[in-house]
Design a protein around this nucleic acid. Structure first.
Lengths: 196, 196
DNA sequence: GGCTATTCCTGAACATGGTTCAGGAAAGGA
DNA sequence: TCCTTTCCTGAACCATGTTCAGGAATAGCC
């Protein structure tokens, strides 16, 4: 066995992912540099490529963490006592707060796949499915008459809508739309949808 | 005067923007190369930087065209006889069709600003305002009781929602969501919102 | 038309940044 | 202890945006 090697390798992977997370959070995905990561992790430039396939793989690892944290934030946001529409609003607000607090990390979640040609990785699909699971419950309470397929579509549609509002809302942060306004937009849309 | 110079310069600019548009449309923004553009336009590499500040400026010019074409597609999509909700759906469908037909060009519209730090350019703001103008009319018919500020927010919210649905819908094109499903999601959300 | 100043074009060179690789160091096994 | 394997190192490689010195074309003027 090669426990020492393995351990060191794992430690390096951890340090690299940690460093990448900090740098992406602070500067954005576009400012991530292999040489900076090597310095942060105290390893040689080439060592990165021993621990990971390439820089992308590190970003993927960061995205995995981010996605888990995001899912956690959303599932921690409600206690189950809310009315369905209210719960959707609360969850969406948690989504907004997370995106606002970690805009660069959250953006990296979507920037990477846009650029890449390869298929969406499994963990991404699963994480998204997890989020959808949280949403589909209140959605099916709001629309008890809908069939499963239509409910799935509606769940996806609502998630996408909130994502769009947050995404465009945070985009021109400098020039407009403060988070409270974004929150109001989310409320407008979701409440309106609840008013059948 | 320097009519001949000016004309050639203008012609080069045109050829570069044209070439960039074709390449972005076909390969995506990420595959755009200065050297390819120079070859396409039949000029030297350095000549690009005489006609434009940098590559970004060319992409901006392409984005300007794209945005105009998108606005045209949306405003051509309705004839004014539709009921308000129906008009929103028709416009959104036009947006979807455009995004589906020219996904890479449409994505470039949003990818650039995300990466850049500078403020959003004026033409972008104006073009978006133009789109919002088209949307706000049916929105104010649907919500006659709303004040201007609330209407503006709702307009923005609905645009963002449709954008989000289209954006996430087209993202994993390979693995899921065909355009008809995206269209159904748009219909679900907008019709639901119209059902006050 | 000829002459000079200016402006533009050219492509080699530069800067940056991801990735590779030959050579040496460390770990594992006997 | 010695050999094998594995890993680490950082210099070099390659791609790509951008610049720049030198030459070509153009403009203005007589």
């Amino acid at each position: 066995m090669s426990s020492k090697s393995q351990a060191r390798r794992a430690q390096l992977r951890e340090k690299l992912v940690e460093a990448a997370e900090v740098r992406i959070d602070r500067e954005g995905l576009g400012e991530l540099r292999a040489r900076d990561l090597a310095r942060d992790a105290g390893c040689a430039l080439g060592a990165i490529y021993n621990a990971f396939e390439d820089l992308n793989a590190i970003v993927m690892a960061v995205n995995g963490r981010t996605f888990r944290a995001l899912g956690q934030a959303v599932s921690d946001s409600f206690d189950g006592s809310e009315a369905p529409v209210q719960r959707l609003i609360v969850m969406s607000t948690a989504y907004l707060r997370f995106a606002d607090a970690h805009t660069n990390l959250w953006r990296a979640l979507f920037e990477l796949k846009m650029t890449q040609d390869g298929p969406v990785p499994d963990w991404y699909r699963e994480a998204l499915a997890g989020l959808f699971g949280l949403i589909s419950e209140p959605v099916s309470q709001i629309f008890p008459e809908m069939k499963r397929e239509e409910l799935e579509l509606m769940t996806r549609a609502l998630f996408s809508s909130v994502h769009g509002i947050v995404s465009l809302g945070l985009e021109n942060r400098i020039s407009g739309v403060p988070p409270e306004q974004i929150e109001r937009m989310i409320g407008q849309v979701l409440r309106q949808i609840g008013n059948k």
